[in-house]
Simulated scan of single mutants.
Amino acid sequence: MVSPSRFNEKKEKILKLLDTPAGEYHDLSPKGSVDEPIRSLISDINSIEGLVTTSSCSGRISVFLEGKKRHVQTLDAQHGDEGSRTSPGGKGGGSWLFISHSRVEVPKSGPQTDLLSKFGIQRSSGTGDSSPTVESSYIHLKFEPMILHILTASLEYANRVLTVGLHAGFRESGAVSLSPFQAGELNPMVAIRSTGYSFDAIIGYQDRCGSNIALVDNDYLRTLVDIANERFKINSERIARFSSFLLKQRMQSQSDESPSFNVSTRRDWEDADVRRRRKREEGLTRQRALQKDSSATSTALDPESVESVNINGLFS
């Protein structure tokens, strides 16, 4: 059992907040609540002793308008315009034009949905639009996979959650807060994430009149959405693996109060990179074994038989 601690107090507060009725609950995410696709996963994690989720996103397709760049904001402030301040990547300001935590359906036949309008962008008129520059606020179409932040009661809990995340395919997962908070208490935060299949494409910009102008056509935008939808499939598969592995290998209390995993030796699934490395190591092992056998065979040759070996041409 995990003894009463700062961790337990924090977990109790988080669970109380999550129990707030849907109409009253609101968090700092753009959506303002836990994403529906991972509600059951969040519940399962929080039911495990020593773990509690602090933030999450199930994965999303979004269209994001950057805020004004810092140097542009400074110039505008001199003229009385206190526009939103942001860095070149769009952080620290800007606005969401579209967010979906599931696939964006695009008809494959018949009249095609105008994705530009769906994403709050208009076609360039070709006349009055100002040309984009490095100072412009750009519009991004993004796909971002699931990310979970899980507070843990100890380094042992963190290590086991991290192992499950990596095994499920979330390769960029990691842990922070590895130094004791107080009185030797250690509550690492584990981030379960995989950024390798996320993407960010610039599809438009905001002109000087405040209009959102497209830099791509509707066909190209449809291609980007199709790619994002395919990555949603990968995202869902990894979430399912993580959930399955976590529940099968969940922590159980022991007499020494140390968490343990019932790690299965059965290979239910193997990440492509892990399999590639394993196959390579197996191949090298076989090669070394063959070389060793060959060397042993050569050493064991009868000296008198060496004379019968045809050496013509060996040094030509």
Rank of each mutant, 00 (worst) to 15 (best):
S109Y: 07
S109V: 11
S109R: 12
P111F: 07
Q112N: 06
L115N: 04
S117M: 05
K118N: 08
F119L: 06
F119V: 06
G120T: 06
G120P: 04
G120I: 06
I121V: 08
I121R: 04
Q122R: 13
R123L: 03
S124P: 03
S125K: 13
G126Y: 11
G126I: 09
T127Q: 12
T127Y: 12
T127E: 12
D129P: 08
D129A: 08
D129V: 07
D129Y: 05
D129E: 06
S130V: 09
S131R: 13
S131F: 12
S131A: 12
P132H: 04
P132G: 00
T133K: 12
V134N: 13
V134P: 10
E135P: 01
E135F: 12
S136T: 02
S136K: 06
S137K: 04
I139G: 00
I139R: 05
H140A: 06
L141E: 03
L141N: 08
L141T: 05
F143E: 00
F143Y: 03
F143S: 03
P145D: 02
P145M: 00
M146I: 00
I147H: 00
I147S: 01
L148R: 01
H149L: 00
I150T: 00
I150F: 05
L151I: 06
T152N: 11
A153G: 14
A153E: 13
A153F: 14
S154D: 14
L155A: 13
E156I: 12
E156H: 13
A158T: 13
A158V: 13
N159V: 00
R160N: 08
R160V: 02
R160I: 07
R160A: 04
V161Y: 05
T163S: 11
V164H: 07
G165F: 05
G165K: 01
G165V: 03
G165S: 11
G165H: 05
A168T: 01
A168D: 06
G169K: 00
F170I: 01
R171V: 08
R171W: 11
R171K: 12
E172S: 08
S173N: 04
S173I: 02
S173T: 02
S173F: 03
G174A: 11
G174E: 04
A175Q: 09
V176R: 09
V176D: 13
S177G: 09
P180N: 01
F181H: 15
Q182N: 13
Q182A: 14
A183H: 14
G184D: 11
E185W: 12
L186K: 10
P188K: 04
V190H: 10
V190I: 14
I192V: 10
R193I: 06
R193W: 08
S194D: 15
S194C: 15
T195F: 04
G196P: 05
G196Q: 14
S198C: 11
F199G: 11
F199D: 03
A201P: 07
I202M: 10
I202D: 09
I203H: 02
Y205Q: 10
Y205T: 11
Q206K: 15
Q206M: 15
D207N: 14
D207Y: 10
C209Y: 13
G210H: 01
S211I: 07
S211Q: 12
N212F: 07
